[in-house]
Each structure stands twice: as structure tokens, then as C-alpha cells.
Design a protein around this nucleic acid. Structure first.
Lengths: 140, 140
DNA sequence: CATCAATGATTGACCCCTCAATTAATAGAG
DNA sequence: CTCTATTAATTGAGGGGTCAATCATTGATG
């Protein structure tokens, strides 16, 4: 198998190995933590805007937020000036719990990138961004 | 967000962007193509052994193979000497069709890794392998 | 040789994701 | 003002994945 092929396959393998472990270690999925993390930064935001920030499909965002609401982490309300829009924000309870989650996340990430120097991290980050850029230029 | 966090998120994003595009470009999912590709190399093999090669869950392998069998790409038979084991292999029809798929895959990969020199590819590949290694050492 | 453990495959329950269709509400054009 | 287009959110269908439980078969042990 060529190096190129191996790279693609390794990215896939890493994703598939990482996702379940991430969830077991942190108690929450990567996507949901991304959503919550964004909410810390921005306060209250429309679902649409949030979706654009985290780069997840509309449908997935709706489902995540509904379940996070059911768990009391998040609250939602309609925009009084435009009833199409739903605003989302952390509840105080959610805000408290998320700090612990972010801590677990940091520890997890540190293990994944163990023995990577800062220079190597920057190098890797740059290459990943280039790949994302290439992907954006593939239209079907 | 730290560089470490960005790296993890980028890997996730790449996977999520790449999977659907890969499937649209090649007409088959990455996992299934991996399975078929392995079958080219090894001829006939037990499902268990195949599963270990491609690093996918047992359950997923069973489902993929059943559907590939339904499409006439693959044939399965029990090991006469041990009825627990199921042997799998490509049908002649499957073998013919897979060449075209592999070609599409090569073109897709070339686009994803556009502007990456051989040295960069090697560097990236090494780093990805290191990450996989780190992941293996995380037990819950 | 009867019983119990290990193995391979399958199935069920559930999570995450995408695309496409639908619903509800607003904005705009005639 | 009415009719159409657009926009945000939701829902349904389906693909991919994992884990845990189950079934059948085989191996091993008392």
C-alpha cells in the first residue's frame, strides 16, 4: 500500500479508535463537548450560528441540543423577534459541569499527543489544515 | 483554543468531511473498499481474520459482508472442518468491479494530499502512527 | 462421555452522521 | 394584501460504528 493510502487509512483508524475512548474518558462525545465549549464563549446564540461554528450538520445539532436540554445542560428559547430562530445557552448547572469535562478532555488530549514537541504539533496542525483545504476543493 | 485541541478537532473534521465525499467519488464506503482490497490480497480468508486485518468491529464486518454478498461482490461458505468459521472471498464479478473502484480511490487520495511532497507525506505518516500508538496505550 | 469454557458469527440496542423532505415563520415582489 | 421565496428547525430514512448478549460449534477437563 502506498504512503498516501496509508495516511488516509490512518486518519480513519485514529478517528475510530479515538471517538469511543474519548467518550469513555470524558463521559461525553467530542461533538457535544464542542457544542458546549462554544456556548461558553458566546453566551446565547442561535442554533444556526452555533451549527456553523462547530461544523456539524443541522440535523445532528438539533438532536444533540434536544438531548442536552433533556439533561439540563442547556436551555433553549425562541427569538421573540423572529420565531424561526431558537436561541441556545448553557444553564448554570451546565456551566458548572462543563469545567470538569474540559479538564478530562485536556488530559485525554495530552495522552494522545504524548511525546509531540511544540514544533511537531505546529507542523502537524499545518498539514491537517492543508488537508482540510484540499477537501473543500473536492466537489463530488 | 490550544494547538493540541485544534489537532484533535481537525482530525475529527477531516474524517467527517472526507467520508461522505469519498463515498460519492468512489461509489463505495472506505470501510467496504478496505475489506474488498484485503480480499484481493489474501484470496479466501475467515471473517475473523479479515476483521483483524481491517481493524473494524466484528458486528460491522458481518453486516458489510452480508450486504456485499447480496450485491454479488463476495461469496461466503462455512469451513467444513470447523463450522464456526465462515470463509469469505471475492466473486469473479466482484474482482472485476473492484479495479475501477481502486482507480477512483487513487484519484480521490491524490486530491486530498495535493501539494504534499513525498517527504511531507512520510513525516505525516510517521506522526499519525505515533498517535495511533499513543491511543493504544489509553485504557479507558 | 458429559459438562463447561472458549471461539466465530450474528443480532439487538444505541450513538453519531448526512441528505432530503417537511414545517413554520418571515421577507419581498407584484 | 396576497402569493412566492427564503430561512431555521425538525424529522425520517439510511449508512457507519461500538458494545453486550446470544447461538452454535468445538475443545478440554474431570
Amino acid at each position: 500500500m502506498s504512503t498516501e493510502e496509508k495516511i488516509l487509512r490512518d486518519i480513519n483508524d485514529i478517528y475510530k479508535q479515538m471517538s469511543p475512548k474519548f467518550e469513555r474518558c470524558t463521559g461525553i462525545s467530542q461533538s457535544r463537548l464542542d457544542l458546549l465549549h462554544k456556548l461558553i464563549e458566546v453566551g446565547e446564540i442561535s442554533q444556526r450560528a452555533l451549527q456553523r461554528e462547530v461544523n456539524i450538520d443541522n440535523a445532528a445539532v438539533t438532536r444533540h441540543l434536544k438531548q442536552l436540554e433533556a439533561k439540563g445542560m442547556v436551555s433553549r428559547r425562541k427569538n421573540p423577534d423572529d420565531n424561526r430562530i431558537t436561541f441556545v445557552r448553557l444553564t448554570t448547572e451546565g456551566r458548572e459541569r462543563i469545567d470538569a469535562l474540559c479538564q478530562e478532555k485536556k488530559e485525554f488530549i495530552a495522552q494522545v499527543l504524548k511525546d509531540f514537541s511544540f514544533d511537531e504539533q505546529d507542523l502537524l496542525s499545518d498539514m491537517l489544515i492543508r488537508i482540510q483545504h484540499n477537501l473543500k476543493n473536492i466537489h463530488y
